[in-house]
Structure formats: C-alpha cells, structure tokens
Design a protein around this nucleic acid. Structure first.
Lengths: 167, 167
DNA sequence: GAGAGATATCTCGATGTCAAGACAGTACAC
DNA sequence: GTGTACTGTCTTGACATCGAGATATCTCTC
C-alpha cells in the first residue's frame, strides 16, 4: 500500500485491491464518495426540514413550485421531471401536500387531461423559511473547501452530469 | 445572467437567483449535483445488477462480506455500519439473503448476543460477477473525465467526507 | 459477585416509493 | 372527420426502509 487510508472509501478501495487485484477499482474513488456524500446530505436535509415541519419530499415539491416564480404553479408532469420521481409518487405527494394545505390543485383550462398545482400562502412561507435554513447548513457542510475548490468541484460534477441532462 | 446554463443545476441556480436574490445559493452548485449524480448512479447500479438477478441492497450486503476476505464473514452490526442502514433493515436484508441462499447465519461462538453472517458459494460467485459488471459501467460513467480530473474530484470529495468518517 | 449501563440483534407498525397498467384527452396523418 | 399513436394523470399492489422498543448478553465498577 503506497498511501494511508484517510477516509472510509480509501479503506474500501484498499480492501478491494487486496481481494480483487485483477480489477481496476479506481472508479470507486469518485462514485462511492458521491453515493456516501449524498446519503449524509440526505440526513442533513431531513434534520433541517424537521425544524419547519417538512419532510424532504415535501420540500422538493414545494421548492420546484417556488422556483417557478409567480404564480408558483406547475403541472404534475413538470414537477415529476423536476424531482426525478415517478408519476405515481407525484400523485401521492400532491395529494398529501394539498391535504396539508401547502398546495392547491385546479384543472388546466388549456388541456382537459391536465392539472395545475400551485403554492398556497402557507406553503410559500414554509418553503422560504426551510430553504434559508438548508442553505445555511449546506454552507457549513462545504466549509472544508475554499471558494476556488468549490468551483472546481462543481465544474467537475457538471461534466459528469452533462450526458444525463442534454439528451 | 453572466453565464449560460449548461446543465439542469445551472438552470436551477439561475432560477433561485431570480426568485431569491437575497440568498447565497452557491452551495447548490456542488450539493445539488452530488444528489443528482447519486440518483443517476443508483439507476445505473440497478440496471447492472438486474443482469445478475441482484437488487442494489443485496449487492451492498454481499460486497461488504466479499471485501472482508476469507472466510467472508461479518456480524450484522459490522454490516450495518458498512452500509449505513438501520438495524431493522439489516435484519430484514439478512433474512432475505439467507432465504435466497446467498448468505448463512450462525451464532457467534464468542458472544452469545451475536450472530455471524457469511457468504455461500453461490453468493460469492454472484457478487464477483456483478462487481465486475458494475466497475465496467462506472468506468463508462466517468469517461468524460481524464485520470487527472478524476483524482482531483476524488480528492475534493474526500475532504468533504472527512468530518463524517473520522469522529 | 451484583448492579448499572452499554451493546447486539430482532420485532413490529407506519410510510414513501416504484412499476405497471387504466383511463381520458390530444395531435397528427390520411 | 376518423383512426392511431401519444401524452398526462391517477390507481393499485408489492416492497424496502425507518424508528422505536423489546430482549438477551456483556462489561465495568464497586
């Protein structure tokens, strides 16, 4: 071993090199860390939203509407594309958000198959507060990296994501 | 807007800057990409494992055992720490893996509270095949970056993960 | 060696997600 | 205009996960 293990993934990669010396396990250095970091981030999000009585899935939908700008209204189809979930999941989410009073549903006047979902006043207030809180925590999570490193990291990740977004 | 949106997260950040110009949304440039990439990676994993009749959760447990080296045996506690799931989940996973014939359970001779879980021959063969396949796909997924960039990316991610692994 | 607290695993109920399919409405070619 | 393919939303059933709590065992201190 030419270098010490400095995090859990280094240990994981070292173990694989011993057990499967025939394989090139370099990709794990990047992708295992991506998975693990996403998992930790999920936990941080859950903690942040709990203070505002929101579940992560509620936040995801409400922010998509918030980001759309006035009148904070999108179709379920647009919402599921924004959140990467299936249509059945989105129906269920909208049902529960409507019941909680955070969103409203109305028929799309231009397409009788369609529906439009919009934020209520309480939904708007809730998501704005939770979002500020989330950004504060994300900022802390990134405090180990300077601005230059953060930009470099974002840029590298963008390259990896490009194939998924463009087609 | 000083720069063009080049991926979905660029668009997301641009939307936030318009809607909430009072907030510093830079952290999203990194962390939203981490989340999204993890989601895409999950899908790729699911597809890779399906060819070997394995679910992602099955793979996670089996690889932890495989990585431990002969005799491919760990306690449920060690497995849940390796996979970041709760104890209830791990009990359930081991039950189903045992039923599928991929692992075996036996009492820990040194600690009567404890149990030891080990790979069967079929479990070992299955996980080795699936792992090769996964690495091939992960390699493709990273093909947009050269070796130097990959190392840089891994290093930046390690810095972010350090606080979670050390304590 | 007795008791308090820690640890290891399992049980159980609630929940969010997905996949597949149903259904209504739209678009477009002919 | 009619038929065919497509789109948008919702329904349903199966399933993996979590969280809280139960039980058994170990460890450490006195």
């Amino acid at each position: 071993m030419t270098e010490d293990a400095r995090d859990e993934v280094d240990r994981l990669v070292a173990a694989w090199r011993t057990e499967r010396p025939d394989l090139d396990v370099e990709p794990l250095q990047v992708l295992s860390r991506v998975s693990r970091l996403a998992k930790h981030l999920d936990r941080a999000r859950r903690a942040a939203f709990a203070e505002h009585d929101l579940e992560p899935w509620e936040f995801d939908v409400l922010t998509a509407l918030r980001r759309a700008g006035k009148p904070y209204e999108l179709s379920p189809g647009a919402l599921l594309r924004a959140t990467l979930v299936t249509s059945g999941t989105m129906t269920n989410r909208i049902d529960r958000l409507a019941q909680a009073g955070h969103v409203r549903r109305r028929p799309d006047p231009e397409d009788r198959r369609g529906v439009l979902v919009s934020l209520t006043e309480t939904g708007l207030a809730r998501v704005d507060a939770a979002f500020s809180d989330l950004l504060r925590r994300e900022h802390d999570l990134l405090s180990g990296l300077g601005p230059t490193d953060q930009r470099a990291l974002a840029s590298l990740l963008r390259t990896l994501l490009a194939p998924f977004d463009s087609p």
